[in-house]
């Protein structure tokens, strides 16, 4: 067992983890932060994307022990201080960028990371960036729109399409 200490969503947490424990399992099972999801076992789907030291990481591809000392952000920590949705979260609701919600935490975390590094991405850049995140419900159409809108770019109103 390994003792680890890290900050998750701004709060210090500690844990005892087996060497093989994945970061996503530590978040979900030990910390009960069940917003981060597991959709595959080959690091393909991106439902588990979190931020580690500010960078998007698939939490199924990192051991919990490796996160010792790290700053981790999950979907649970994305809302504004007053509890309102973040700009990206709100854009997903406004533009119907989610249906079943299972891939959504990973999509929001990926999109948030994208906008940090590229504040006004083109449609093609958004699609390229999301290559590691699979959604089965939306066909990506409204996810792309949500991210465009979150970046302050114009998107056509739903009814006008």
């Amino acid at each position: 067992m390994n003792s680890i200490k890290l900050r998750v969503n701004g709060k210090e947490v500690t844990g005892q983890v087996e060497g093989r424990t994945l970061l996503v399992d530590f978040l979900r099972k030990d910390l009960r932060l069940t917003g981060t999801h597991v959709g595959c076992d080959t690091t393909q789907c991106g439902a588990c994307v979190v931020h580690v030291n500010g960078e998007p990481v698939k939490a199924c591809a990192m051991l919990a022990a490796e996160a010792d000392g790290a700053e981790v952000a999950t979907i649970e920590g994305q809302a504004n201080a007053d509890g309102s949705l973040s700009v990206v979260q709100q854009a997903f609701q406004d533009h119907h960028g989610l249906q079943c919600g299972f891939c959504t935490p990973g999509m929001v975390m990926a999109a948030t990371a994208l906008l940090k590094e590229n504040p006004k991405p083109s449609e093609a850049e958004i699609r390229e960036y999301l290559d590691g995140n699979i959604c089965r419900c939306t066909g990506y159409h409204n996810i792309v729109k949500s991210i465009m809108a979150a970046s302050g770019q114009d998107v056509p109103a739903m009814a006008a399409e």
Binding site: T36, L85, Q93
Partner: peptide
């Protein structure tokens, strides 16, 4: 085109899927 009320919990990580039940 009413916005979906269920989105708030899905977007904030507070949805309750079966694997979230322990």
């Amino acid at each position: 085109s009413t916005k979906r009320r269920e989105d708030v919990r899905f977007l904030s990580g507070t949805g309750r899927y079966t694997d979230d039940i322990n």
